[in-house]
Design a protein around this nucleic acid. Structure first.
Lengths: 246, 246
DNA sequence: CTAGGATGTTCGCAATGCGAACGAAAATGC
DNA sequence: GCATTTTCGTTCGCATTGCGAACATCCTAG
């Protein structure tokens, strides 16, 4: 059913650097003919997912309803949010919950304290799993073969000088996460950012999400991160697991 | 272009109370024939926006990318987030930014402190504009005729005993918001919740969003809300406006 | 003012996607 | 436990939707 596929592509074409596009720009960005792009855009406008002043097209807040359909169906977010808030109140550092989508992590709950990263994180933000503490926890929850397949497909770029990019080394780290029960990263995603993550499991023990605490490197050493935050983080994760339905 | 329209309907059919559905349930929820529902669902699975175990279908985190296309294009979120975080650090109450979509407000930035409402709010959450402080600020930013049209279309339900539901009274309140430059609500959306909101305007003076501070009724009186939080909130909004591009 | 290039729109044809009809599986009745 | 009804998932021929070549229109430059 290609119309749906193409239509969704059109929506996604409106990214960070192109909030507004003309018909032709959309056509170029999606690889569609201008005629097709026009039909999709007019339909999106008709449905109120997009606006146009006649020349420029842009998305409306209505598209958030689509993502919201997922989030509100995910009882995890509802259950986790108060516990993430409590943890933040307790440790005074930012905390989040993320799930895995292929080789990316996707934030589903986020409670920031002070600004910590250069890039703003919100619900829906994605990062490559291999370079994040939550990602490694989530990968550790998969079958070994699955992990290897995902890593093989990813291009393991060095996002900072400290990023682990060697596949074998990553597999070793993930194995360690699996045995220890938590993951720590030291400025592997962004300089100055340290993070500690633990898994959230369903009743059958399957890892369904990860929860983290992140802190600024100058303020918190790796040893502090583990000593001060691991226990509260594990407790918060346990409370979330206890509240999960079924 | 009905395929796109119907496909998006299918995505939205997965709401809070139906995270998982069978083919027939989806058909019933959307009004499509079972055959059509099947084609859309299989396409969504193919595109990785949905999963299935053969019988039950559910959405994947990938659908968040669609909403994210909107959010990341909205420079407002990026600009506003650090200022909202600063405000929360300063006043120790939850703060948010929302935009208007027809007669609803939609949260685009949210920084919670302690749990304040029974229902979890996240980016993408919607509430009827008429019953919220941010909604009234946003309505006050529209043409009078537009406001009247929107209110006429809404069914003004009493969400709490204190909700203003009389259309004429609401128009009066909105006029007052327009002249005062801010809106306050006292437990009109949910019992125990008070909220104060101010507009965020673009360079041309057009109201593009609203920013609020909300607090629990037992802890903060309406007078306190105004005395203690109005100035910091106005300052934060002004800083956001100053940072807006162009 | 005219030529060239790019953007937006129309329209006939073909492929996509529609739903009636079919088969399979579960629920109900006896 | 078997027959019957109801519900669910799937197939397939036909009509409609959506495709893109071709046309029209708007800028830009010389």
């Amino acid at each position: 059913m290609q119309s749906l596929a193409r239509g969704l592509e059109v929506v996604r074409a409106f990214g960070a650097e192109r909030p507004e596009m003309t018909l032709s720009e959309v056509a170029k960005a999606t690889g569609l003919s201008r005629a097709s792009a026009r039909r999709f855009l007019l339909t999106l406008v008709e449905l109120d997912y997009a606006r146009t002043d006649g020349r420029l097209f842009s998305l409306t807040p209505r598209v958030l309803e689509l993502g919201y359909a997922y989030l509100s169906g995910l009882s995890l977010t509802e259950v986790a949010q108060p516990h993430v808030e409590d943890l933040v109140a307790r440790v005074h550092e930012s905390s989040s919950v993320a799930v895995l989508d292929r080789a990316d992590i996707v934030y589903v709950v986020r409670v920031p304290t002070k600004r910590i990263m250069t890039v703003a994180i919100s619900v829906g933000t994605r990062f490559p799993a291999y370079a994040t503490s939550m990602g490694r926890v989530l990968l550790a929850g998969l079958e070994q073969a699955e992990v290897e397949k995902l890593l093989a497909r990813s291009d393991l770029a060095a996002l900072t000088p400290l990023t682990t990019t060697d596949p074998d080394e990553l597999l070793r780290v993930i194995a360690e996460v699996r045995s220890k029960g938590y993951a720590m990263t030291d400025q592997e995603l962004e300089a100055g950012l340290r993070s500690l993550a633990v898994p959230i499991r369903d009743r059958r023990g399957k890892v369904i999400a990860a929860m983290n605490v992140s802190a600024q490197a100058p303020r918190v050493s790796m040893i502090q991160l583990e000593r001060e935050f691991l226990a509260p983080l594990l407790e918060a994760a346990a409370r979330i697991e206890a509240d999960l339905p079924k």
